[in-house]
Design a protein around this nucleic acid. Sequence first.
RNA 1: GCCGAUGUGGCGAAAUGGCAGACGCAACGGACUUAAAAUCCGUUGGGCCGUAACAGGCCCGUGCCGGUUCGAGUCCGGCCAUCGGCACCA
Length: 883
Amino acid sequence: MSERRKAYPFDRFESKWQRLWDERQLFHVPNPGEAGFDSTKPKFYILDMFPYPSGAGLHVGHPEGYTATDIIARYKRMRGFNVLHPMGWDAFGLPAEQYAIKTGQHPAITTRENVAKFKSQLKRIGFSYDWTREVNTTDPRYYKWTQWIFLQIYNSWFNPETNKAEPISSYRGADPDSVRLAYVAEVPVNWCPELGTVLANEEVIDGRSEIGGHPVVKRPMRQWMLRITAYAERLINELEGLDWPQGIKLLQRNWIGRSEGAEINFQIDNHDAHITAFTTRPDTLYGGTFLVVAPEHSLVDLIVTEEQWPAVREYRERTACKSDLERADLSKEKTGVFSGAYAINPANNEKIPIWIADYVLLGYGTGAIGGVPAHDERDLEFARKFDLPLAVVVQPTGNEPAIGFTGDGIAMNSPIINGLTSAEARKKITAWLEEHGHGKRAINYKLRDWLFSRQRYWGEPFPVVWEDGQYRKHRALNENELPVVPPELEDYKPTGTGEPPLGKAKDWIRYSDKATRETNVMPQWAGSCWYYIRFCDPQNDRRFVGEEPERYWMGGENNETRMMNDEGMTKHEAGNSSFVIGHSSLPRARGGVDLYVGGTEHAVLHLLYARFWHKVLFDLGHLSKPEPFQRLVNQGIILGEDNQKMSKSRGNIVNPDEVIDEYSADAFRCYEMFMGPLEQMKPWSMRGVEGVSRFLARVWRLMMDENQAGEWELSPRIQDIASDKSQLKLVHATIKKVTEDIESLSFNTAISQMMVFVNGFTNVERIPVTAMRMLLVLLNPFAPHLTSELWEKVGAKFRVEPAEITQQPWPSHDEALLVEAEVEIVVQINGKLRARLKVATDASEETLKAAALALPKIAEAITGKEIRKVVIVPNKLVNVVTN
RNA sequence: GCCGAUGUGGCGAAAUGGCAGACGCAACGGACUUAAAAUCCGUUGGGCCGUAACAGGCCCGUGCCGGUUCGAGUCCGGCCAUCGGCACCA
């Protein structure tokens, strides 16, 4: 196999073209004001999710999305856009640090090596990135600005009046630290002993760490938090205008988890205090027969009676030991303990017992609930376990039993709201509660504030110091003190105590006589939260991004000239004619990245965090639009040949390098796209690669012959002659299909059409050079090396300007050439195909009907039957309906 | 349990409500070759009828059941299966 001759001599020219593209800086796009910037062109910002450069190198999943965006980037350039298509490295993170722990090698070295490997692999595939814009999150010139953004967040607060972030100086309250968007809290966190760090909720899956699958326990620690919850409402509402898959929007909405209801105050019997409970069903208030508070609730200490203390203490200790996994285990029975105290149900003034149970979570709502066993599954289960009373207060509208009915019905046994529908009842009782000072309308979110510190080495240090003795008062550094560079360390191991590894760098920690540095570092998400902004102006050392480049690349909302250009650009010479095809279906920019392609795994993590940061920076006037990514597309996962997820243990991993060695980079690219729809999950097939490589070889041999000496030369079949009618039709049908399919990201069918084209010219003795040129232009975004080489060969004999294929304008098709004089009409009887008919195109309905009924087969079939109706679709079919 | 996506030949897949299976893979047959590989040409959803052989014809078929329609892979309702997400969120 390995010694088999290559299907075509790609190994002789692929690296040549990659080198030439580099040398000629062909894909470098200048910023406004820079040399070579063309302001008459519209912009298009097309972005990939930048990778974490792991030691294992690229696998075939990465280049799937990258190939799709590269095709569009190349296509858009040919359509006359200024295309921003950058790549960089999300290089902070655990693996490099773990490697450092094992070997003592500094993570920066590992990172540099891995980046070099990834970069060379990407270059081998022939991606047209503007490498002058490469960024690396671990570069001090980059993370200086990550730290700067943290300072912006730290130095601002969310003003509920204006519904946006403002400088902290505009806050009039007593304690600004209590409202900062970045704040310190002693919170129960997800502590992972194995990794020696805390993790965000998003990084914990089923009570285990997402990375490594180690157990995670709850433990209170001093942590930096970002007040993302302040933006919950906007993060939901502003999803609306984005061109994202509905599923991803839904995932984010569910993650944020908005629910509307009421907070109700329950007076504690014999105490001058009350417990506030959140509920989405205030209409069931009369059914509340007990109260449950979370074990960690602050009022527990106050209300528990003498005789109940031992039981409560024991219960609290027991729940504290539980992992999240155990606590969330639904299959297990509910647990809880009576506090000894009672509260008053404000609706009916009844005394109800207060229980303590871990099915109530401290982190959601108020950490206390009113138990309504008749109309809530969990409360019902709890009530049955501990023999608490039930009260039915909602009458189901159907035949369901009232006990355990959780839907909306009619309120009953509830004097204030009897007879009302649940929706009406909710409104009325909430108004009643507000009126009597027993509660108020409230909205709650599942979304928690973002736990933003990590006890690690390989991350961005916080630009913060602690003054007045250890951990007393935090103070942000000045901008001019950035970047804060992490110290060199001998030993990167976690301390195991929760004290971050940076704590070992005694000299570094000491900031001044009375101040020490913060030793936590930022999570990996920090760098990826804004890299797409930095790409607009990556070399800027005075600002995180220049105002003009930001406005140009992220501004969106095309002005008149841009609109005109977008349309006008399609007007190019195409074969023998010019014709403008329909407008682009890729959306017009409304701000932000025009197209962002990446995996679904980032649906709620990266994409939510980045939106949050973007909005803060927008509010503070640093950015021109409120959303970072206008259009999002998720590529599907590529499975192994065995239809299983690719993994080392299954031994089904496909290495791009090997595929390229054997079949060429172009075949690799084309196969990745030919496999199926971009967004679909699909299995790899080496046979499939071979098939696509055969197609590319056919393109090669269409234009090249091998002479006696075994050298390839331009085939004498290629001649400067006109295409015949059917060839012209094929050319234009292909222009149309390929253009439309690229616009709709249907790359697989675009390739199919080009296969049809090539099949049509196989064994043709005299091939019109114009048709071949057209094929090369259309195929160029998919197979840039092959088409560049052939373009050059063809150009050597038949001169054409410009000499570089990547600078060719994209053609448009002539609809008139697609119309045949005659069309075949399908004739059906009662919807079943019975005959075919050739008629002149655009024949009238009468003509069609007459011709169809005159067909012997049809005439015969309808003899003796009544024709009830004849359906006629011009140029398509005739359907005769009989009885 | 809730939410979402998907379900079409031996396989990857195509199909503005209008000829189901384009294109590719695999398989089979043929040409070229001493032979093979490569290449080129052809056949290829299932069943039945038909013919000496072609030609030709009929029926069934897009997970299952029903509906709308002259006509449904496509639209509507209900199931089933697979995958993904969330999961005591009050």
